[in-house]
Design a protein around this nucleic acid. Structure first.
Lengths: 173, 173
DNA sequence: ACCATATACTTAATATGTTAACGAGATATT
DNA sequence: AATATCTCGTTAACATATTAAGTATATGGT
């Protein structure tokens, strides 16, 4: 995830006015030359994701949570208790990253671990009351932002996008 | 970027057959409960991006390049010479990350820095012959994979997806 | 010329992504 | 039961993401 999109829109906003104009022309010329670069699907998916996250990031930042930490909390709020591996799959976070995320959330008092009794290898994770409370506070605000986002697109387009993304997701190299 | 999608598809493939069945039912029940979680646009964009990158990652890995390093090389191959800031904007990489990426690529002999004569603050970056050669070798293979990707989707859908993503990218929170 | 401000890049600190390897616990096979 | 194999979570090592602060250089107004 890269920074908020705005930070990338200021490239030409430097130097004198003449320099700005020169830079703008120069960049425009260059952009024309290499349409392929900017048209790549992976790059556009990256940018699109960043644009959507810009809606939520401020709220999460204010709460002192990262995007990934929120995904974990959100999943646990729905599933009550999950194994580390299930959490990884749901949140699209690799196990090694998840270990650190869980450690930090645990030391912040947001969740608890316990070992499965049947299988000593498995770790079961659940939210603390504190985290459930935090979820109740943040969830409506984030849902509101999600509404702001989706309201800027027609229902049909949103539906289309969802279907197209699903198709992409199921591609096999 | 998270790992190849396949790694997430094995969650239920552990334990005895009975356990597998139980887990599958349990997870299915849970999935039904929380459609919202998996339907979030940002998460789908993340997954979709990962699915597309799975087409290219093996080739890059074989060449000892990361995804970001390749984005930088690709941009420089088209633009000849770029300032660090321009590179950051094009590649969607923040300046602090880019500094490290440039350092590593430079020490691998893939690119060179020079200071602008007019503005001593600016650093101009360009590829070495070695990197240009590497680009020539990798580019066709990666283009081939890109073709494999797009061939699995109809032209219309691809066009639709591009337009929808552009629309998302231009949203303002 | 002088000073306040702005810009380009870097450094620092922390969190996460990514691959490989490790250790403890479970399974299967003999 | 003994051994090899598999699985889960973790650690290690490195690259990148993210925000804040720092450094050198430029620009604008006085």
């Amino acid at each position: 995830m890269f920074a908020e999109a705005k930070k990338y829109d200021t490239a030409a906003a430097s130097g004198t006015l003449e320099q700005q104009a020169d830079q703008a022309k120069s960049l425009q010329r260059k952009f024309d030359q290499m349409r392929k670069f900017n048209d790549s699907i992976p790059l556009k998916l990256l940018k699109a994701r960043e644009s959507t996250m810009a809606f939520f990031r401020p709220i999460l930042q204010e709460a002192g949570l990262t995007e990934q930490q929120w995904r974990v909390i959100r999943a646990l709020n729905e599933y009550e208790e999950l194994e580390s591996k299930q959490l990884a799959e749901l949140c699209c976070i690799l196990s090694p990253s998840l270990t650190g995320i869980i450690n930090r959330l645990e030391s912040q008092g947001h969740l608890k671990r316990r070992k499965s009794t049947e299988d000593q290898r498995r770790v079961l994770i659940s939210l603390t009351d504190q985290a459930k409370q935090l979820f109740k506070e943040l969830s409506p605000r984030l849902e509101g932002r999600y509404g702001d986002l989706t309201n800027q697109i027609s229902k049909e387009k949103l539906q289309q996008l969802n279907e197209l993304l699903s198709e992409i997701i199921h591609l096999e190299p």
